[in-house]
Design a protein around this nucleic acid. Sequence first.
DNA 1: GACTTAGTTGAACGATCAATCAAGTATTGG
DNA 2: CCAATACTTGATTGATCGTTCAACTAAGTC
Lengths: 193, 193
Amino acid sequence: MTAMRLFSEKGYESASIADILRGAGANSGSLYHFFPTKQDLLIEVLRRYRDGIAPMLLSPAWEGLSDPIEKVFALLARYRQALVDSDCFYGCPIGNLALEIHEPDPPVRDLIAVNFDGWVNAIETCFTEAGTRLPRDLDRHSLAVFTLTTMEGGVMQSRTHRNLNAFDQSVAMLRDYVRRLEHEAVAEGNKVA
Amino acid sequence: MTAMRLFSEKGYESASIADILRGAGANSGSLYHFFPTKQDLLIEVLRRYRDGIAPMLLSPAWEGLSDPIEKVFALLARYRQALVDSDCFYGCPIGNLALEIHEPDPPVRDLIAVNFDGWVNAIETCFTEAGTRLPRDLDRHSLAVFTLTTMEGGVMQSRTHRNLNAFDQSVAMLRDYVRRLEHEAVAEGNKVA
DNA sequence: GACTTAGTTGAACGATCAATCAAGTATTGG
DNA sequence: CCAATACTTGATTGATCGTTCAACTAAGTC
């Protein structure tokens, strides 16, 4: 859908209905037959992102990988590639919308939250699959949230600076942190054994 | 200035000139006498944020603190308080603008970058002041960038979920990471001694 | 082949947007 | 005290926004 591309490129408010219609080669009446308001269109777009996380984002990023921790950083590498391919114009579409929606606007905000949750849960699964490679008492969910934090914060800064440094530095720090957690888990294992 | 408040509350595009005029009790002609375009107004707002980082943000957050690492997390606590006080409606004004500006728009983007740089440099100074409490080969600048990443990513998620969990979890992870770095520095010190 | 439903067309609507401007009032400097 | 400059007023502009609608065509049903 053209709307997905334009919302992602220009943002929700900036992407006018006229833009979308022109891009899609459609007429206003047609659009409004399916989506009574612009917000309904946004909601459909967010639903598609939600449903697309596994097939469109994770599957391609994880092709041929089995190591769960490698998978986490392969996904982050995917966002890095998006930055590279767009000369650092790329911004996570969900993150953009998250900051663009200022009114309470419950249905939209909920769907953004659901998108974040889907992403975080996928990463949490990786960290859970890592089993004893990570410390026993480490909260896998928190680490997954922190991974999304790193991605969103890194993309935001790299987009602003138009270079990859901030993203790369942030991911390198996260990578170092996870390595230290792995080392601790090894030490833990030795103690038990 | 009312414009600062409204840009921060509603975003740049959503805050109409009429809103700002009403809020400030001024007339359009007056405003346009000082700021020929809306973008010029935004630029002035960004300049004030830039100039306000030290006096308005850091000084109050760091009052009575001398420990440089404590200062870093005191600043993050400040953002947490902003989330609490606003029922998690708060978003970092600079971060919001960073994601709202989609066009190249060099003067605005540069000023956003400068704001980020000011923030990062202040934090980098803290980590540099921490001296041998952190590993010798640790890049202080990267860690400062990572701190901003954590703040922006955490605020984004907490704002979306309307609760503090994501922010708190992210900051807790960063805190844990820094603690591990401190432990390594201690080990380093022992080795040298 | 009549009847219904689904989908399309594009001109038009009112609202609102950023921006303008001619006419006015303070403020200042000589 | 006057002329010049600095600032204010608020109605107005044209563009653009999301949305509507009456007329139209295509597809499916019996």
